[in-house]
Design a protein around this nucleic acid. Structure first.
Lengths: 230, 230
DNA sequence: GACACTATGTATAAGAC
DNA sequence: TGTCTTATACATAGTGT
């Protein structure tokens, strides 16, 4: 759109990049606004400008409400598939277009390029799938377990992992205590989190993670699932 | 954009609303993607379709990372002012209306779209990175843990996950024993794997997994790491 | 950075499949 | 729902202030 067709790649000129950001940011917010009104849906949009400033938009509800809905959404795990779907759609369209304009440019080269990219996407997807499977062992809802075998297997893996982490913790404890550093860990262990208003152990963990800024959001939904499951 | 000018108000016809959502959602995601690439900025976009389905987009970083950056951003409080600014700007523009009518079609070079897709692959890869980070909590080498905090956090996550899996296992045990099904699990629990030639517990687990064909190969490297670490 | 202009590239409403 | 087509409305790159 504009005088020339713009390649979708990082704009190297800083000034230009910021100008484009300003323009497109407004366009994007407008589109998000229109979508939220026309279709009566919750939309949350968060951007960080090149200079690090925060810009965001949300419809009627506050961003926080929408984020909450997001982290609590059971579909959360599957979310990344949407990007893949989009990818597939764009790719399909592209291929159709390439086929239609078969005569014009260099059909062979662009087709092979397409194949190559398709391969890469497939590879990426299978890797994602593999990782999803591996993550399911740890982050997945236990209710998905339907056989004793699998429950046993998961339990043993977790026990073993726990044992190793525990050993590592002890090593670190010894190291810190012998070097005279303050034993910051034991004081903040969840077993001493009783002062928290929350009594649900999962929420305690959540708060613990959050207060340490370590891995809060990405674990929220797991904990939520847990409270719902049992 | 389209045959007629559309009023920005809720589309009452349900079918129409959903069709429009589908179209505009894709457009919005595309725009968000272009902005994130062109201007090299973090963008997170979350939508809930009229039917309650979750759709989201994020650039290179995972949504969780961006949300975390958002939550921790000091400017957070002032955020909603941006919407007001936008409204004011739109109102200002509403005063001066101008019409332009131009049209011309030309065959789009698919090269830019190729680049677009290549960018998508990059995004895909960064999602892989994110998952790797999440997996590291569970599968990663404990020696990578350098602070007591992190050891504590990992331990608590593992304990909690273990607790949930254990509860699930008990449920399944009860279900099977009460339905008269043979208690296949206890017999093959690793504690009774003494007949195996391997004495290393980790290799025992590995063999256990392997013999049950459940999740063997993808866990190999974890166990390998374990034997190397200690 | 913001605003205005204008030529162009895009998105999309409608409609049909 | 997804997809394609077409006509039309919009967004925006480049430019100047």
């Amino acid at each position: 759109m504009g005088r020339v067709k713009l390649q979708i790649k990082r704009i190297e000129n800083t000034t230009n990049r910021q100008v484009t950001f300003s323009k497109r940011r407004n366009g994007l917010i407008k589109k998000a606004y229109e979508l939220s009104v026309l279709c009566d849906v919750d939309v949350a949009l968060i951007m960080f400008s090149p200079s690090g400033r925060l810009c965001h938009f949300s419809g009627n509800k506050s961003i926080e409400e929408i984020l909450k809905r997001y982290v609590n959404h059971p579909e959360n795990e599957r979310g990344r598939l949407h990007n893949q779907e989009y990818l597939r759609r764009v790719l399909g369209k592209l291929k159709g277009e390439a086929d239609r304009t078969y005569q014009e440019a260099s059909p062979a080269s662009s087709n092979s390029q397409l194949e190559e990219i398709q391969q890469e996407i497939l590879s990426c997807k299978s890797q994602l799938e593999d990782m999803e499977n591996r993550l399911r062992i740890f982050e997945g809802d236990p209710l998905e377990i339907t056989t004793l075998y699998e429950a046993e297997v998961r339990e043993q893996i977790l026990k073993e992992t726990l044992r190793r982490v525990h050993m590592r913790k002890q090593v670190l404890e010894e190291r810190f205590s012998s070097s005279g550093a303050p034993p910051t860990s034991e004081v903040q262990t969840p077993s001493t989190l009783d002062w928290l208003p929350e009594k649900d152990p999962q929420v305690q963990i959540l708060n613990f993670l959050d207060s340490n800024g370590l891995l809060p959001l990405r674990c929220l939904h797991v904990l939520d699932l847990a409270t719902k499951s049992y």
